[in-house]
Design a protein around this nucleic acid. Structure first.
Lengths: 109, 109
DNA sequence: TATATTAATCGTATTATTGCAATGAAACAA
DNA sequence: TTGTTTCATTGCAATAATACGATTAATATA
């Protein structure tokens, strides 16, 4: 079908999948990398930094914003983006909880 | 277009995106959860455990195997799946390195 | 007011993903 | 050999994601 059957999975599994999906595109990884590197808000030079067209970047930003990982503050004609540290921390906790399951797990083969 | 422009991103960013994508579906998260929970190899009862058809599970397993996160050992007519702990650790290191960027980053707004 | 700047949105072409019925392949049992 | 079991593969339909040109909306500036 092309449609994920989210109803048969737990909320936690669906949430992990949502965050996984948002990091499932290198452009969004690159956007986050840049926001972390710059250590401040970025006023829309992401189009020059990353080599994609303005509507494409805008779309990726929208998805990151939709999951609450970044915020966009309007300043005049431009918009300043920065990381939502609190939401990032929550996401990080969830993802690391998933990734860290191996420390309790024995190797069997 | 529908085609990611991987060539304009770093290898690291593309790799993070690949792992992100594989966790971008709740069925694959559920498969990993189950493998960790069971603490042993699983011989094909994943179809019953997760509520998807056999070809669908097989396809998800293939993607996890392709990234090296699980191994499949043929045993008679059945196949036993288990986690590749070494590759999981490498993946985990990469992902946590990405997620942990916030500890060096100041909040600006 | 007219123009420029910035970024979101719309529309659309292209490609990817998801899900499953049907089929195939391999090992085992009778 | 003839079924049976188990899982992979194929083929296809439906939906999602990616990318960008064109346009729109909002604000600033001359």
């Amino acid at each position: 079908m092309g449609l994920s059957k989210t109803e048969i999975f737990t909320d936690r599994q669906n949430q992990i999948a949502l965050f996984g999906k948002v990091f499932g595109h290198p452009a969004r990884v690159a956007i986050m990398d840049y926001l972390f590197k710059i250590q401040a808000c970025v006023c829309g030079d992401l189009v020059n930094e990353i080599g994609l067209a303005q509507p494409t970047i805008s779309q990726h930003l929208k998805e990151l914003k939709h999951l609450g990982l970044i915020k966009g503050n309007v300043e005049g004609t431009s918009v300043c983006y920065c990381i939502d540290h609190e939401n990032w921390m929550h996401m990080k906790k969830l993802m690391i909880g998933f990734l860290d399951q191996d420390i309790l797990s024995e190797s069997c083969c």
